[in-house]
């Protein structure tokens, strides 16, 4: 167990629900679930979830910390918001799923190499650099996320699309040299660092 995870587990003991309420985006909503399952049935990627959202909620209440945080399921969220608008208890399910994924990622117990986890990381890194996402760099990063050899393969596989997009002026090869960015990229970086610091403090992360 890594440090952050160890500390969290030690601090909350068996009360995983409390941990989720304190530290996960919209986690205080979890307890309001009444197990109707409409979220599970509404998700476009539902068939690929090992644990449906409502089941994850039950698992949280039952203290199944490791199973939840190491689950692949919430990384399947496409942010389509079907679950949110249908939930009879108005749980912000999309956000809770995002929050759980983020928390698992932060504690570094989310599944290693989970593709969405990697893509999300790369996306964030891309935006933090300049304040705006550079689609080309981001795409290349995505292709090379599994290593150089795999990246070449991915890139070759997708090169048809890439070429077509370039032809359609929707992928600019010059972006690799710099591309769009915010003037105040520095301020943005500082601002994000501050936000993280405040949030960590509020959530009781000591490190």
């Amino acid at each position: 167990m890594n440090d952050l995870n160890q500390q969290a587990a030690a601090h909350y003991g068996k009360n995983f629900l409390k941990e989720v309420e304190d530290r996960v985006e919209d986690g205080e909503w979890v307890k309001m679930c009444m197990q109707c399952g409409v979220c599970a049935g509404s998700c476009p990627l539902g068939p690929h979830w090992e644990h449906s959202p409502q089941k994850i909620f039950r698992m949280i209440m039952a203290g199944k910390r490791d199973e939840v945080l190491s689950s692949d399921s919430m990384w399947m969220c496409t942010s389509c918001y079907n679950c949110i608008v249908r939930c009879p208890r108005k749980l912000p399910i999309t956000h809770i799923m995002h929050g759980l994924a983020h928390y698992a990622h932060k504690l570094n117990i989310a599944p290693k190499g989970q593709p969405t986890r990697e893509v999300a990381r790369l996306f964030w890194n891309s935006l933090v650099q300049t304040g705006r996402v550079n689609e080309l760099k981001f795409s290349l990063a995505v292709y090379f996320k599994d290593g150089f050899v795999r990246g070449i393969k991915n890139a070759l596989a997708m090169q048809g699309i890439g070429l077509k997009l370039m032809k359609a002026k929707r992928l600019n090869p010059m972006e690799i040299l710099g591309g769009h960015k915010c003037k105040d990229a520095g301020g943005i970086k500082k601002m994000l660092a501050k936000a993280k610091e405040i949030e960590d403090r509020r959530q009781g992360f000591s490190s």
Binding site: K31, M34, Q35, R58
Partner: peptide
């Protein structure tokens, strides 16, 4: 009333 209990943190397990 059920909602209120959930809100207070009572856990319901089917």
């Amino acid at each position: 009333f059920y909602r209120s209990a959930q809100h207070k943190g009572v856990i319901f397990a089917k």
